[in-house]
Structure formats: C-alpha cells, structure tokens
Computed example of a mutant assay.
Amino acid sequence: MANQPVQTVNTSGDKVKVGLAICAAVAGVVGFYLLAGQSTLVRSLALVAGLLVGIGLLWTSLSGQGFLAFAKEAIRETKKVVWPTRKEAMQITAIVFGFVLVMAIFLWGTDKILEFVLYDLILGWKR
C-alpha cells in the first residue's frame, strides 16, 4: 500500500466536497466574528465547529485522501533523516556565525574604501 500511487482524479462530487469544506471553514470564522456579543466560549465553539465540519468534509474527498497519503509519506521520510548530534550542530552554527562576521567586516571595509574613493578622491567633499 505504501508505494501505490494515489488516485488524483477530481470528480465533480469531489470538487463539491472541497467547496463545501471551504464554506464550512469560512462560516466558522464568520460565525466567530458575528457572535462578538456572546461569550468567548460560544464564539470559539462556532469557530471550532466550522473547522471540524470542513476537515470532516475534506477527509472524505479524494483530495483529502491524497493529502493524508502525502503527509504519511512525509512523516515516513522524516524518520529516515540522519539528524546531526548536538556537537555537530554547535560546530555548524559556529561556522555560520564566523562566516557572517567575516562577511560583515568585508562589506564594512568595502563600504569605507568606496566612501573614501568616491567622496574624498573623486568628489572632494570631505576636505
């Protein structure tokens, strides 16, 4: 099942489900703002209900199933990554900071040289 391609054919019913899911999520957000006079709990419940209905509709669509398969595969690939040790991460960070410092000094020096050449030698403004 892991290496089987995901069916990505969008039928009109699938598009309707996605549209309804978007509408449900938007309705939850709109309900949150329209219920401004109500308590925070009521407003939050309206928002969460709209989002849950939207997620539920997406879950049953082909697009949602494709996204779930993609997410599972991404998690599986993330587990295969060899993460650096703390020592390696600190060394890499030190190299990056060192490089940034060297580049900052280089750009500052270049700026000062160009300033001297342009303003003092060419234009003669700083006499």
Rank of each mutant, 00 (worst) to 15 (best):
E73L: 07
T78F: 11
L47C: 06
V53S: 01
A21L: 03
A69V: 09
A74E: 13
G124A: 13
T78M: 12
L35W: 00
A69G: 10
G56E: 01
L20V: 06
T11F: 00
V18Q: 08
F67Q: 09
L41Q: 10
F106S: 01
K112D: 14
V81C: 05
Q38A: 10
G13F: 05
V82Q: 11
L62Y: 04
L51W: 02
L45W: 05
F99A: 11
R86N: 09
F99Q: 08
G31S: 01
G28N: 02
F106R: 11
G28A: 00
F67L: 11
M90D: 15
V53K: 02
K17L: 07
G50L: 02
F106Q: 09
L68A: 01
L34D: 05
L121T: 10
E73Q: 14
S63R: 09
I122V: 15
R86W: 12
N3S: 11
V82C: 08
T60M: 00
L35K: 03
V42Q: 04
I75D: 08
W108T: 14
M103I: 14
T93A: 08
K87A: 15
V48T: 12
L121P: 12
Y119L: 15
V96S: 15
L62M: 13
S12G: 04
V6F: 06
I95V: 15
D14S: 01
G109A: 14
A104I: 10
G66V: 06
